[in-house]
């Protein structure tokens, strides 16, 4: 009777707590859906990655399809080499797909955006994306703008 009410209330409380945790994990956070083996990796070289960070999203047409796995430096070409981990679900990206680093909003985080090409052959694990566009450095653009104005 009385003990049962207590037990029931405690059961509800624990359930509510776990539910809240589940909500935080699934709805609020991004559960790591790209576990090992669930993705394939391609690399892309950029002249400048700006403030791109590991685990930043990889988007295609605004849809998140993967994340940045690793950012390294090629010591021959002095280019940044970015490994993109793309979900196995999207295994039909054409080989002539191009990658560019864009910014979410004016001051938002940077992410990698892919633009699919028209080839019939698809990117495989270990392939390299050839066409890339580096991050736009806002301060560089502004200073160029100022210099060109001054040149007039």
């Amino acid at each position: 009777m009385q003990t049962r009410t207590v037990e029931f209330a405690v059961g509800l409380f624990v359930l509510a707590g776990l539910l809240a945790l589940a909500m935080l994990a699934l709805k609020v956070g991004n559960m790591p859906m790209f576990g090992s083996g669930q993705y394939y990796s391609v690399t892309a070289s950029f002249g400048n990655v700006g403030s791109l960070k590991e685990k930043a999203p990889v988007m295609l047409a605004g849809v998140r399809i993967g994340q940045v796995g690793h950012i390294g430096l090629n010591q021959q070409t002095f280019e940044a080499v970015v490994r993109l981990d793309i979900s196995k679900k999207y295994d039909n990206l054409p080989v002539d797909t191009s990658a560019s680093i864009l910014t979410q909003g004016l001051l938002g985080e940077q992410f990698v955006s892919l633009d699919p090409g028209g080839s019939q052959r698809y990117l495989k694990n270990g392939d390299k994306i050839r066409v890339t566009q580096s991050a736009i450095m806002l301060d560089k653009i502004i200073s160029q703008l100022l210099y060109s104005k001054a040149g007039h």
Partner: peptide, 10 residues
């Protein structure tokens, strides 16, 4: 969702 990491933040 894009900014909150389960392993770090939560």
């Amino acid at each position: 969702q894009s900014g909150v990491s389960v392993t770090n933040d939560i």
